[in-house]
Write a protein that binds this DNA or RNA. Structure first.
Lengths: 194, 194, 194, 194
DNA sequence: CATGAATGAGGATTCATTCAT
DNA sequence: GATGAATGAATCCTCATTCAT
């Protein structure tokens, strides 16, 4: 195995190639040969950086989930008002899911994952929910949302609506993603149906 | 192959066994032998009813999607007010996803599916969105929701929130599903965050 | 198993159906279901008359070889002169091989056959050669062929030429079989090339 | 797949091993594992060189048929007189069929072959017949055979007699092949029975 | 007697992984 | 370090055979 020092660069390259291949073919459909070819290296070289297909998958999963969590955190932190925060999340969500949607779905077959990665995954999800809950808590303090709002359910509503919107746009709607009216989505979440 | 007349019963039995096995192991992890054993029959018998593992999967997918669509339709139709309709959907959603969640996730790897099944799947999704949009339209007429509400986005919000809630309860929350406060969820959707 | 008394008729029916199917698909390609369907009976019924696919094949082989041997014997016996005898053989050969050629080829994979059937087959071949050798012997006595002719080689020449002619006509030549000039073939055999 | 440059050697090795196994067990009886073992390689390696059992079979068939055709051409070309040419053919035929007889028989189940290979096979047969016809034509010019001889039938007679002789020696006669009196066979063909 | 639904042994094929170069 | 030819374990599927009806 290669000393950890110089590994970083190529490791990331392989992971990015693998994300594309896993997304296109699913876990079992993704042959190591495809991944190597996509990364522009030999089949054997992948094994210098990852000890098995499965561990490569798990590394990617962790990596992606962390990327997602961090991006979301930043989206929230960068917004001034709660509305702006959610707006940022909507934009980031669309962008991220557009690139990783398939991978996310593969990842959801949580049943096939190891305990270790499963915990990581669930933990990350929980952390994301916490981010939102804290955001709501802050919004309550600033009086931007009603004070009797259940924070868990609010988080649910935001996450669910944003995700569902992405799904519909990506799977059902042929239009490009750049003309999305994020403001309108956020409006529905904030104002509700009534 | 067995005449279509008498096939129905055993076909359904196999499909139900297969849903369990697919859910537990994923598509590629689900060996035909497991499925046969789960259905209490011999391996070869599965092939009397489905011409391949893949087509078995597709049949199940169609079947599940249709079951879901029909259940949702009924949930909406059985409610008097819009609030009650959404409440019904929430209950049905929780119940259905609890039994099929894993399968639904496997199914979402839409990329690996045939054109035919993919169209069926997308079509069913579209129909479901239509159900909700029509519900919103009716609600507008009755003045239960504001008249400037975008129907598509409203559907997004309802579907997304209900689904996300289920996911959180099923994956992250160890509590049983029967003490869910569906009313609270619906409240958030209807009143929004503010 | 069915009492041998009334078996004869249906047994022959099955064998004839099986010859057609074996000829069309080869031994391993011929499914018992095809054979049953071709004979217009149920799959299980075939097993009432033959204890296995393999033994069915062997029975057919014996049957066909015997049919061929008998037909050839008759062809020889029915001719007055040697030339006429060979002429009859040529006609019978063409007719028989046209119906059984593929089966004959399948049968030639002697290696896969049991010792028993192999001996029967080889014995029948030997008997056929004997028929021809006796014919030649008779012809020598009548002065129709030269007296220094090797009987074995003469048989070889007759059998080989007639068979090869059939093969060419059946495999390479699209013309129907009824306008064959058997006299010309026999001439070549009798007069030689010179 | 391995680059075509360096494939040649091992490909031929596998084909030769496969000829032995196909000859011994027939097409369906020949397990890929046997073939691999016979070639002294792993099962998977065969698939690096041939995409399926069937295509391996077809490649062998083409290869064998071409080998046969070329050997026969040379036999004819190397003879001075027509008699010598046929003599050469008889020797080559015996030698080749002794090594390939079983495979040739398997190959004759032309019905199961693909259109492509079938055409190749039939074409090769036709070419062989042409070789003989041209030989006869030349013999006519040199006055070695009578001028009214039908070339097609003459070819038939030569091919058939030589093949039939081989069959008899290989299948029915326990004697070794080296004491064959090829001259006697050729005599019968050239002088005829009379 | 006849049937055909059910069975499971058997074999072609795939692909993650190894290791000699 | 990098490679890709070789490997064989693992699995889908076929079909001869059985046996309950």
């Amino acid at each position: 195995m290669i000393p950890t020092a110089s590994r970083g660069g190529k490791q990331i390259e392989i992971m990015n190639a693998a994300i594309r291949v896993f997304s296109k073919h699913g876990f079992d459909g993704a042959k190591m040969e495809y991944i190597a070819k996509e990364a522009g290296i030999g089949k054997g070289t992948v094994y210098e950086y990852f000890k098995s297909k499965y561990s490569l998958f798990e590394e990617i999963l962790k990596y992606s989930v962390d990327q997602y969590r961090l991006g979301l955190k930043q989206s929230i932190d960068n917004g001034q008002t709660t509305e702006e925060k959610i707006l940022n999340c909507s934009r980031f969500n669309t962008q991220f899911l557009n690139n990783h949607m398939d991978f996310v779905h593969i990842a959801m077959q949580v049943k096939i994952l190891s305990e270790d990665i499963r915990h990581h995954h669930i933990a990350a999800q929980s952390v994301i929910i916490e981010y939102y809950k804290e955001m709501i808590k802050g919004a309550k303090d600033k009086g931007e949302v009603r004070s009797d709002l259940d924070e868990e359910l609010a988080a649910c509503c935001i996450i669910g609506t944003l995700d569902q919107f992405c799904k519909q746009r990506i799977f059902l709607d042929p239009r490009p993603l750049d003309d999305i009216d994020h403001q309108a989505i956020v409006d529905v979440v904030i104002r509700g149906l009534r």
